[in-house]
């Protein structure tokens, strides 16, 4: 499904996309289970990284629409109170919209790509409140998120095998540039 020939791709912005046929096949899937899982991940991230709220500042109540260009659904995300919705079509009353591929989105969340570089290469499109988007980008970049860690924590006693499987998946999507450590 994914291919990653250039190990520096995650940093340079040339990341793989989901094949259109697979995206079409995903369209009938129910969104609620995904929404429940991702809502749990969001809650956990915000609980473990309260500095995100400091960096979001006055934009902590902003509603962000995130549209992965290679998926048949999108996300509506709010930090305070933490809410995440999975929808087929983004509502109109959002503060800001962010469009990019799923792989770029994941790489951005983990700080593996530079948001400005994605803008320069036109792999990232933003609309709406640019100040809120910048605050979000900087808050996430500073949080040093580890998505494998966050997702695998939801699997309880199966966390260890889940972590292994998710780490392998991340390796295929984003390459070997992952870094650990906190401030």
């Amino acid at each position: 499904m994914w291919s990653m020939s250039d190990p520096s791709a995650a940093r340079s912005g040339s990341l793989p996309v989901i094949p259109p046929l697979l995206a079409v096949a995903m369209r009938p899937l129910p969104l609620l289970p995904l929404q429940l899982i991702l809502s749990g991940v969001l809650q956990r991230i915000l609980q473990r990284n309260p500095a995100i709220f400091d960096r979001l500042g006055e934009h902590s109540r902003a509603r962000f629409g995130i549209e992965p260009t290679d998926l048949p659904f999108s996300f509506v995300v709010e930090a305070s109170p933490p809410r995440l919705g999975v929808v087929h079509v983004l509502p109109r009353d959002l503060d800001a919209r962010i469009r990019t591929s799923l792989a770029s989105l994941l790489a951005l969340l983990e700080g593996k790509v530079d948001g400005d570089a994605l803008m320069f290469s036109r792999d990232l499109v933003i609309e709406g409140n640019v100040e809120a988007i910048l605050a979000l980008r900087n808050a996430i970049d500073d949080a040093q998120l580890d998505l494998v860690e966050e997702l695998s924590s939801l699997f309880g006693p199966l966390g260890r095998p889940a972590r292994r499987a998710l780490a392998m998946a991340r390796e295929r999507v984003l390459g070997a540039s992952h870094r650990h450590g906190g401030f």
């Binding site: 520096s8 340079s12 790489a107 593996k112 790509v113 530079d114 400005d116 570089a117 970049d141 040093q144």
Partner: peptide
């Protein structure tokens, strides 16, 4: 200074 960690690192 306005760029992300990926920029700084590379």
């Amino acid at each position: 200074r306005q760029r992300g960690r990926a920029y700084v690192d590379s």
